[in-house]
Design a protein around this nucleic acid. Structure first.
Lengths: 270, 270
DNA sequence: CAAATAGTGTCTCTAAGACAATATCAC
DNA sequence: GTGATATTGTCTTAGAGACACTATTTG
């Protein structure tokens, strides 16, 4: 037996206490609202998947989907697995937004969680899970800044409305962190995670990194613009958007049909 | 006893296997090389702290400073504690660059690590630790891109030279990940961590976020420009740099002295 | 034709990059 | 004065934002 292998077999990690490690995922998609006017394009809203907790702690509160890390997978694979288990869909993208490790963040014990943002393409979703299961629901998202460092997170589904208030903390590498002022009906530190996720998403949408993931393979430039406007909560002049995005897309020879107005050319991601 | 508290006392986390969790830190500072010409300004190089491993695994290889997470601290506090233990200095900044969780990344067992970049201000360092302890050394850093997705990481200290080769993988949120082609004399997956850290640092230096942390409270604009040029491995025209950075700094009424040429005004971070 | 969206052209203003010119100190 | 750096000015060009205008479809 070599010096190294004998060392390894004798090595014990039992001296240190170990935390449970989970992945929590902010699963996002777009919800399209058909308008009453047949000529008008449909509206898009940002939508977030939450799960109602059946047991303690935080019984009857809403929580992010997530689960424990297994020894044979990376934290990214764990997050992917959890999204697929929960939605039975393959997300278009998955991005880490950091490790949440406050010792007291979970009353059940020492549980730290790496949070992710995951985006589902709008082509696949529609009639899928999270609509029938009573305990999983898609909430419309509104996230707006006060005059100060105060942010209001508003999640609504039919007559259920979750309101949380947060304060902007430090900002490293463009990753903004938040502290919870009022968690509303959200479990654990999940309001904090959602706020950080949405901020990161907005930053990422600035340079067209993530906006394609919300759409099917082929899309109109107006649809793409709507995604950016919805995510960033801004409004853009279409002429300027088209110029800026031109380098990131390529034309197809297909057009939209039967829209009640001029057809639009379909584009693909370059 | 309430329903909730009785539930909590009965709750057990023992069903899941748990990993050991560590923080590894890419500790950086600037090293100033005085030039032979008394008129010339000193040169600056980026410098990285590594520790020579005394035992298996990776005996005699070089590794990042780091240590195990304790139950009463966050991962950021853990990283801060480890830097201070290793350098006996308080870092100017600390930024997470992600969780490294490959199941086989550590031969000793299931150990996952959150990596950080930490910057030490150049005023405090100089004659400090890492110079006398034989097992801790500051290495000059060079990190350059090939024609392809290939990057060469070069760490040198006197006659010791560590060379690693990496391949650029995916890029989420502007966070670029790497895979190791050749790890050189670097332990574990630390070449991967260093590459990701340096890439993140370059991105952050673009918009003047991190460059101040390398300098003392008061500095000249030329010094500040040197920091950005050193980190990003580029060269900038000073006139343009001054215009761009003007909004991030404010003047003092002090000047440099005895430099062998025109004195420079000292500035502070705004 | 009316309503609605799709798509183009152009003006202004700002910021980035390149380069030239001037200022000031130690010796 | 010389050598080195510090600091300012200005020209050109690229891009962002605002706005006006044209094009195309369905009912």
């Amino acid at each position: 037996m070599s010096e190294e292998s004998s060392f390894l077999s004798a090595y014990k990690l039992s001296d240190y206490e170990r935390p449970s490690v989970t992945a929590d995922i902010v699963v996002l998609r777009l919800r399209t609202e058909d308008s009453e006017n047949y000529r008008q394009n449909s509206n898009t809203k940002l939508s977030l998947l939450l799960i109602k907790r059946g047991g303690h702690p935080f019984k009857d509160c809403w929580a992010l989907p997530g689960g424990f890390l297994n020894p044979d997978e990376t934290i990214e694979q764990c997050a992917l697995r959890e999204v697929e288990e929960e939605t039975s869909l393959k997300p278009a993208s998955l991005m880490s937004i950091g490790l949440f490790s406050e010792p007291k963040r979970d009353p059940r014990g020492w549980i730290i969680s790496n949070a992710f943002v995951s985006v589902l393409g709008s082509d696949k979703v529609e009639q899928q899970s999270g609509d029938d299961a009573k305990d999983a629901q898609w909430f419309d998202v509104s996230f707006e800044q006060d005059n100060e460092d105060i942010f209001h997170l508003n999640l609504s589904y039919r007559d259920t409305e979750l309101k949380a208030t947060l304060k902007e903390e430090n900002s490293d590498f463009g990753m903004t962190s938040f502290s919870i002022i009022d968690s509303g009906e959200l479990a654990f530190d999940h309001a904090k995670i959602i706020a950080k996720a949405l901020t990161a998403l907005r930053n990422s949408a600035k340079d067209f990194e993530v906006i394609f993931d919300f759409l099917p393979e082929k899309f109109t430039l107006t649809e793409l613009q709507n995604v950016q406007e919805t995510i960033m909560n801004i409004s853009i002049l279409s002429a300027n958007f088209r110029r800026k995005v031109a380098g990131y897309v390529e034309e197809t020879d297909e057009y939209t049909q039967g829209a009640g107005h001029r057809p639009a050319k379909l584009y693909k991601k370059r």
